[in-house]
């Protein structure tokens, strides 16, 4: 982590660190596999629709498209396992390592450290959700302030992190339907089928609207956010989405004087 400067300057503008190259590569693999799975899976889910057959034929038809789907699924499942190992290693090395170095590692601090990882939901998120709705419904003029990971980003994170373990194993069962029925009852395949198709619908509907709103459609992001490529947020994005973190980082770097007032999506607001 120390390889990345929390604040860098380029062309006189300030940028704030978010994702390491390692994480960005994982994201690229994740989204390319998900898109591949979606376009080889949804024509099957909606086989009766007029667009289904042309799309499926384009993806290789009934012979090749299932193979692509399974290959992409295997990669995604592999990525899931890899990512799990990745955050466990990070957690042990950084969080627990720090505690150990300070001689404070015990069961209680360990659990606490686990729940203070940046992607794990906590009480602050609950308050942030309430704050957000208060602001959106015009009950306050103070936009919500988020720390390093906002609750919406945690949703974005857990969409695939909950989705893959539902979709993946169900998909594996459906893939090896002949072999697995030596051990497990056929009705499990019925369950796997519902899990696979309905969870896929949730994932895709969420991806195409909620996540893409966050990074593509939103007025200040349109046509696309760049953080997934550069790993750094602009100051405006930082102020809009992570004002608490912004304040903290700026203070840590002795830049209190240059802190800008909060705004919401590029629009200055009056206090």
């Amino acid at each position: 982590m120390s390889r990345y400067e929390p604040i860098i300057y380029k062309d006189g503008k300030r940028y704030f660190y978010r994702f390491s190259v390692h994480q960005r590569v994982q994201h690229v693999i994740l989204f390319s596999m998900v898109l591949l799975l979606a376009i080889t899976g949804f024509p099957l889910r909606h086989a009766e629709e007029p667009w289904a057959k042309p799309l499926y034929d384009f993806m290789g038809g009934t012979d090749l498209a299932p193979l692509i789907h399974r290959a992409a699924g295997t990669v995604l499942l592999g990525l899931f396992v890899y990512h799990t190992i990745y955050w466990i290693v990070l957690f042990i090395r950084n969080d627990l390592g720090q505690l150990k170095a300070h001689g404070q590692l015990n069961f209680k601090t360990g659990i606490k450290a686990f729940f203070s990882q940046e992607m794990v939901p906590n009480m602050r998120d609950f308050h942030d959700i309430v704050d957000a709705w208060k602001y959106l419904l015009y009950f306050t003029n103070r936009p919500p302030r988020h720390e390093r990971m906002s609750w919406r980003e945690k949703f974005d994170y857990f969409a695939p992190y909950w989705g893959v373990p539902i979709l993946g194993p169900a998909g594996v069962l459906l893939w090896w339907h002949d072999e697995v029925t030596h051990f497990i009852p056929g009705i499990v395949l019925n369950a796997a089928y519902i899990m696979h198709t309905d969870e896929a619908l949730l994932a895709v509907l969420f991806l195409f609207f909620v996540h893409w709103y966050n990074v593509h459609y939103a007025p200040e992001k349109f046509p696309a956010a760049t953080v997934w490529l550069t790993g750094y947020l602009t100051e405006d994005e930082m102020i809009h989405e992570h004002y608490s973190e912004y304040l903290r980082v700026m203070t840590e770097h002795g830049l209190e004087d240059e802190i800008r007032p909060q705004h919401f999506g590029g629009q200055e607001y009056e206090l």
Binding site: A132, W133, Y135, L136, L137, Y138, F139, T140, N141, F155, L202, L205, F206, F209, V210, Y213, P219, F264, G265, Q267, Y269, E270
Partner: peptide, 24 residues
């Protein structure tokens, strides 16, 4: 999940139309 987020985004957009208005 989806209608929650749809509502959230809808109101967020609505908030941007009148950024300076507030009850309190």
């Amino acid at each position: 999940v989806l209608y929650f987020f749809l509502a959230l985004i809808f109101f967020e957009l609505l908030r941007r139309l009148f950024p300076n208005f507030t009850f309190i």
